[in-house]
Design a protein around this nucleic acid. Structure first.
Lengths: 220, 220
DNA sequence: TGTAATCTTTACCAATCGGTCAAAAATAAT
DNA sequence: ATTATTTTTGACCGATTGGTAAAGATTACA
């Protein structure tokens, strides 16, 4: 039995090191070119390793990608899991937005890997989306709905609220090239995310305020 | 000189037909797999055409992709161009959001093509982003800033406001698979976009209201 | 109808793709 | 030091890639 096949703990120091180097290089490549657009040679070269050597640790291209996606999905939903019904609704939502924005800032490759996967029809994670993801979102949407019923938040569709949080935060990772091109080079990287945090706080919490008076202008 | 090389009007009926078929098929394929992940054979088959026949109309894979991207960029920025300083600020922003959402609904392939291009580093449209796009956005951001100075809109960073509109609307095209997976199959396609329009109106215009009283809760 | 231009196909090419294999090199255990 | 094991390598495979050459089929036009 080859080394990598053993899921039974027995990992050499070299194994752990090289697996990490491969996954890191693969994250670079996959997040930039998508699954089909990436080649094993590219990943191997980026990892400073020969192709057969890489294939000694991961038997197929799918195996590398699958491992990355698996680890990603674990970490990706953590911020939403942390949303606590017992907490203050406004602070819970605010914290969720901030955590997601931090993840876009600190793990842009992971965000792009996920975006690539979804864009390309999510053939490899369809089950997760319709299963654990949907379940988690439905659960949290119920909590948000109760918050709204208790007048702690302005009423709106909680599912679409979650979508909008995903969209606005991940935008800073997925469309980073465009954001930087439009803002120009005068803004440092950190400054962009500070501005984004400030803006998102404005956008969501001048809309999500508990007090009821709406500013709608067309009574129609 | 081959037929397709002549940019000088002389297009046969067959040329126009086949070019359209090819571009339509290529839009399907490119928007789903990105540039590197798409193959000429795939596009040819999807267009019901042999590969050499396709290459008679477009000499390279890049040529097809370039033509698509070019036509896309034309249409893509129209809604923003239509934003009129002379109009009512709230209605102008509201209309822009609605137009962008309609484009996400009616041209999801184009949205995904663009997203793929940006995700993969925008190597083929970097110039457009830093040139015409940045110029247009800067121009409209100035208008929005003046609206805010005139107290017609709540004050915020206009660039990030535009980003958030892009992010929230295009999300419904680019992440459609995820949206459908989370919402489940009980919602028809049209209904999703109606809900989205309603929600986005809530999100932006309970925050972008002209009247100044903010609902911030942490006075710090 | 004849003919020139346009359109389509078959056969093919070199390069690259994901992946295999056996043997060599490095490492660890005794 | 010897052996057993793990790691690395170069040479190679069939399939697919983007693209070409040239001949055949079709069309437009006189």
């Amino acid at each position: 039995m080859t080394a990598r096949a053993s899921r039974t703990q027995r990992r050499t120091r070299i194994q752990l090191e090289n697996e990490q180097r491969i996954l890191d290089a693969a994250l670079d490549v996959f997040s930039l070119h998508g699954f089909r657009g990436s080649t094993i040679d590219q990943i191997a070269e980026s990892a400073g390793m020969s192709k057969p050597n890489l294939l000694y640790y991961f038997r197929t291209k799918e195996a590398i990608h699958g491992e990355l996606i698996g680890r990603l999905m674990e970490k990706w939903l953590d911020p939403l899991r942390e949303m606590d019904e017992a907490g203050d609704p406004v602070q819970e939502i605010r914290r969720y937005i901030l955590r997601k924005l931090e993840m876009a800032r600190d793990y842009p490759r992971e965000s792009r890997l996920f975006a690539n996967e979804i864009l390309q029809g999510a053939p490899r994670i369809e089950g997760v989306l319709k299963g654990p993801l949907k379940q988690l979102v439905d659960e949290k949407a119920e909590i948000i709905k109760r918050w709204m019923a208790d007048e702690k938040l302005a009423k709106c569709d909680p599912h679409h609220l979650i979508f909008s949080i995903w969209a606005t935060t991940q935008h800073y990772a997925d469309f980073d090239v465009q954001v930087r091109a439009v803002l120009g080079t005068h803004k440092s990287g950190a400054g962009r995310f500070d501005d984004a945090a400030r803006f998102l706080d404005f956008l969501f919490f001048d809309g999500l305020r508990p007090t009821g008076q709406s500013g709608k202008s067309s009574p129609s």
